[in-house]
């Protein structure tokens, strides 16, 4: 009987298509998150200043920061979901190996990160438009494309990087949650908390330091290397942790 001799690449493509179809809800959740973020971006800060009894200035600031924050949070949760047991079992209802499952998830998260980058670029002008509708006079504090042409691509790259990073952190957490009879996730959080707590007692703020490690990097290539390095490590851990995982419904 003729047996199929599939290539990894073909199965990878099929799995990616499948994941795009089955995770469509992730993108509707993203839109919901972004709409929710509007509440924060429009009411983040407003201040009124009284000059005298008859006139005052009211300043309302509209910022895109909440949108980016929500985007990154979304990435984390979707990352966790992609790695959970249901998705794992679903992948094996079709043709899959552990490697193709992880790689197709990685591709999915990459695509989603790029999507996040594009969204953020669009959010700037969108907010400006909404602000124009809401308020009479607006003053833009960010630069336009003619003033600082590199700002936009830089913003894009940064958002993609941070989104991917959070995807990876979530994915690793999700992978751990499948180990140790489902308690692996809690165990990992427990250990991490202990580490942070110990370093905190020792006077070294580890959470702050790890965030600054990335935030403070001003040289783009180094930043990219750091991100790619971190993501690779996180992804590798996720793959290793699940390499002998069985397909069971527990």
């Amino acid at each position: 009987m003729y047996l199929n001799e599939p290539r990894q690449l073909d199965i990878l493509k099929q799995q990616l298509r499948f994941k795009l179809n089955s995770n469509a809800s992730a993108f509707t959740i993203l839109i919901a998150f972004q709409l929710f973020a509007l509440l924060f971006s429009f009411s983040s800060s407003s201040s009124s200043h009284y000059f005298d009894e008859t006139s005052y200035i009211s300043i309302n600031a509209v910022t895109s920061t909440p949108h980016i924050t929500f985007m990154i949070a979304w990435a984390f949760f979707i990352g966790v979901r992609l790695a959970n047991q249901s998705k794992w079992n679903e992948a094996f209802s079709f043709v899959s190996t552990r490697l193709t499952h992880h790689l197709s998830n990685l591709l999915f998260m990459l695509l989603a990160s790029f999507l996040a980058g594009f969204m953020v670029i669009l959010i700037g002008p969108a907010l400006r438009l909404l602000a124009n509708l809401r308020y009479e006079e607006i003053d833009t504090l960010t630069s336009t494309i003619t003033e600082a042409p590199l700002h936009l691509p830089l913003q894009f790259i940064t958002v993609v990087c941070y989104t991917l990073l959070l995807f990876m952190i979530g994915y690793m957490m999700g992978s751990f949650s499948q180990t140790l009879n489902g308690y692996g996730g809690l165990v990992m959080i427990f250990f991490l908390s202990i580490i942070f707590f110990i370093t905190f007692i020792l006077g070294f703020q580890m959470i702050g330091a790890s965030i600054l490690f990335l935030f403070n990097e001003s040289y783009l290539p180094f930043f990219l290397i750091k991100i790619i390095g971190l993501c690779t490590i996180l992804f590798a851990i996720s793959t290793l942790v699940t390499s002998h995982l069985e397909v069971r419904k527990s």
Binding site: L3, N4, E5, P6, Q8, I11, F18, N21, S22, A24, S25, S86, N89, E90, F92, S93, F94, V95, S96, T97, R98, L99, T100, K249
Partner: peptide
């Protein structure tokens, strides 16, 4: 973890997990 075995076999039970949000038509197309 064999791609050849996965590609040439299918495991069917009463559970056979599928994404809950997809329709039967979607699954058939997959």
């Amino acid at each position: 973890n064999s791609l050849k075995v996965s590609s040439n076999s299918i495991f069917v039970d009463d559970l056979m997990p599928f994404p809950q949000s997809m329709t039967m038509n979607d699954i058939l197309n997959e």
